[in-house]
C-alpha cells in the first residue's frame, strides 16, 4: 500500500465547540491508482487530502505514505519528504504571479540541493507534452485557466513524485479544459503514479479506479453513482 490511514481523526475548534472534519478514517490506497474523493461541502475532503499530504496533523491516528509515518517525522523531514514524494494541484492553481511558466514549474527545485535536482532537464519536455512550450516565458496572468492548471500540473509532476494530490483541479475550468486535465492525470497514473483527486464533478468518476465518498468526516467507499447519499455541494 502506498498510502495507509489508521483511525485518523481531525477536529477544528469553532468558538466554544469543535467540528469533526475526519472521524476515525481508515483507508488503504494501492500504488498506481486514481482515486476520486467526493462528498458534500464540509465533508472533510480537502482536510483528508492535506492530512495525507503531510500539511495537516491529525488529532489522532496514523498516516503512512510510502511506508513513512508522516507525522512521526520532524517538520523539516516532513517538508523534505513532501518536496520530492508528494505533488500538489490546487483548484486555484496557486501559481506565483511574478514567475514565468517555466519558473513556476521549476519552483519545486529551487530549495533542493543540486544532487536532488534531477528533473530540471525534463521541464521543457514536460511543458511541451502539456502543450505549453510556446508559453514558457509568459506570466500566469497571460494564460488561460486551462493553461494555468496545466502549468500547475507540470509543477506538481516535475520531480515525478510517486503521489499526486489534486484538490478540485477542474473546479475553475470549462469542460474541454477539465477533460484535458483528467487526461494528464490518467497518463500519470499509467506511468505508475498514485493520484488522489478531490472533486465535485461526477464526470471525473469515469477516470477513477475507485470513488470514495466522505459524509460527515466518514468514508464510504464506491458509493452507487445514482445514490441519494451524494449531493452536489
Amino acid at each position: 500500500m502506498v498510502i495507509q490511514l489508521r483511525n485518523v481523526t481531525r477536529t477544528f475548534p469553532v468558538r466554544h465547540d469543535k467540528v469533526t472534519a475526519l472521524a476515525e478514517i481508515n483507508l488503504d490506497i494501492e500504488a498506481g491508482k486514481l482515486i476520486c474523493f467526493c462528498g458534500p461541502s464540509g465533508s472533510g475532503k480537502t482536510t483528508l487530502l492535506f492530512t495525507i499530504g503531510g500539511m495537516l496533523r491529525p488529532n489522532s491516528g496514523k498516516v503512512s505514505v510510502l511506508n513513512r509515518d508522516l507525522y512521526a517525522l520532524s517538520k523539516s523531514e516532513r517538508a523534505s519528504f513532501r518536496a520530492t514524494q508528494i505533488g500538489f494541484i490546487f483548484q486555484d492553481f496557486h501559481l506565483v504571479p511574478y514567475l514565468t511558466v517555466r519558473e513556476n514549474v521549476l519552483l519545486p527545485l529551487g530549495h533542493l540541493k543540486t544532487s536532488q535536482r534531477g528533473g530540471q532537464q525534463d521541464c521543457d519536455q514536460l511543458l511541451e507534452r502539456l502543450g505549453l512550450a510556446h508559453r514558457i516565458h509568459h506570466k500566469p496572468s497571460q494564460l488561460s485557466a486551462g493553461e494555468r492548471q496545466r502549468t500547475a500540473i507540470a509543477r506538481a509532476t516535475v520531480l515525478k513524485p510517486p503521489v499526486l494530490l489534486a484538490d478540485e483541479p477542474t473546479g475553475n475550468l470549462d469542460e474541454h479544459s477539465a477533460e484535458e486535465v483528467y487526461r494528464v492525470l490518467t497518463e500519470y497514473r499509467e506511468q505508475g503514479g498514485t493520484v488522489l483527486v478531490v472533486t465535485h464533478t461526477r464526470s471525473a468518476w469515469t477516470y477513477a479506479d475507485q470513488v470514495i465518498q466522505l459524509v460527515g468526516g466518514r468514508v464510504q467507499v464506491d458509493p452507487p453513482v445514482d445514490s441519494g447519499h451524494f449531493k452536489e455541494g
Binding site: 499530504g53 500539511m55 517538520k75 523539516s76 517538508a79 523534505s80 519528504f81 513532501r82 518536496a83 520530492t84 500538489f88 490546487f90 486555484d92 496557486h94 506565483v96 504571479p97 519552483l107 519545486p108 529551487g110 530549495h111 533542493l112
Partner: peptide, 12 residues
C-alpha cells in the same frame, strides 16, 4: 497563498 504554496512544496 504563495507562502502556503512554498511550504507545500517543501520550502522551510
Amino acid at each position: 497563498g504563495e507562502i502556503g504554496l512554498l511550504r507545500a512544496l517543501g520550502y522551510g
